[in-house]
Design a protein around this nucleic acid. Sequence first.
DNA 1: TTTATATCGATAATTTTTTATCGATAAATA
DNA 2: TATTTATCGATAAAAAATTATCGATATAAA
Lengths: 215, 215
Amino acid sequence: MTKKLISAPLPTLKRLPRYLHILQDLKAKGIKQVSATIIAEELGIDSIQVRKDLSTTGIIGKPKIGFELNELIDHIVHFLNWDNMTDAFLVGLGGLGKAILGYDNFKNYGLNIVAAFDTDPELLDTKVHCVGVFDIKKLEDLAQRMKIHIGVLTVPVSAAQEVAEKMVAGGIKAIWNFAPVKLKLPDNIIIENVFLSQSLGVLTHRLAQLKNTEA
Amino acid sequence: MTKKLISAPLPTLKRLPRYLHILQDLKAKGIKQVSATIIAEELGIDSIQVRKDLSTTGIIGKPKIGFELNELIDHIVHFLNWDNMTDAFLVGLGGLGKAILGYDNFKNYGLNIVAAFDTDPELLDTKVHCVGVFDIKKLEDLAQRMKIHIGVLTVPVSAAQEVAEKMVAGGIKAIWNFAPVKLKLPDNIIIENVFLSQSLGVLTHRLAQLKNTEA
DNA sequence: TTTATATCGATAATTTTTTATCGATAAATA
DNA sequence: TATTTATCGATAAAAAATTATCGATATAAA
């Protein structure tokens, strides 16, 4: 029997960051306490679900009152491990890679991109959004020496598998993958895909449906 | 009491674009027929699920053989309405907005961004990635006149609600929202959110878990 | 021609996720 | 102080999604 892991169903995990957005909003307004009901109303979802999600993370509230806002925020932040800044490498300085580098909000999400890699000679040894750019050949060695565990993959599809393998060779344990391709890596590597086509497909399909029913 | 418009479960809808990636890969290799088993293996999921997803879209295959590759591709593309290019506006030319404009692959996903909007005077009346940039004040009027139905929202959180309302006023029916905020719009507006924090939260949580069990 | 095999589609079972119910409790109010 | 109220957390029910089973069928092999 393995140690009891504090885990959560995937749908719950995905809702937590949204709760956090709401909570930080409320905090900015000077509010001190919050109930599952309020969060649920704000997001247009069921309050029972919010309560269940929160209890999954282990926090306990008070009847009639709800939760201490600060405590709840800290709790979720900790649960997502966003209170521990993790250093990461980003590979692929196309439009998306640059955009991610420029979005320094990720620091609030525990992600600290400390170096970027590309093959474009124009970019090498420059800085993009204050982050140094290196030749992709140095990736493996640097990742090992700096004990980097997260890789952000924003290269074209054609290069994705190869670069991902280099990341793994460098000791990277988790890959945030933006290339629309299935990476084939050892089972113990955590892969989190962002496939914009999925989201766009939902949208275009629904829009077509809407037009069908209207017509 | 909203009418039910969704013709496929959301999880199915989200898997279809992934199937398409695989299928187009196979097509490029000259393959003519494909079975659910092959798609499933390629993605590391269950073949029964693939078969079920495909049958949800209405296509029929042959025992022992599977599906005609071209027919299957066309079928999914049509189901997602990606065979009908839909014109769209993009608002917010920060890093992400520019990156999306630059990624002309979206044309394969039925999305044709025909104009962009921002408030930055530097950008007005220029072109970014061959797309004209206009003052956000013109959004509503232009959307109406050009009968635009999709809006891509890449503005900062602080502006998102306001801009979204302008889109709706201009007749836009579906919003692809990249701002990490819950938009409050009429029920008949289709909203598809891309919250990177969700995906990142899953990744950082899992990585922390992994380290816990190793320790 | 007969047998073996891979896959389909339909139906059923299982698992996961969401939603409902209800007693307990902390605060507000009468 | 007693009553009312909003919310919690636990448990149960319902709904949704995934996975399993099985007969039918098209091709390949014996």
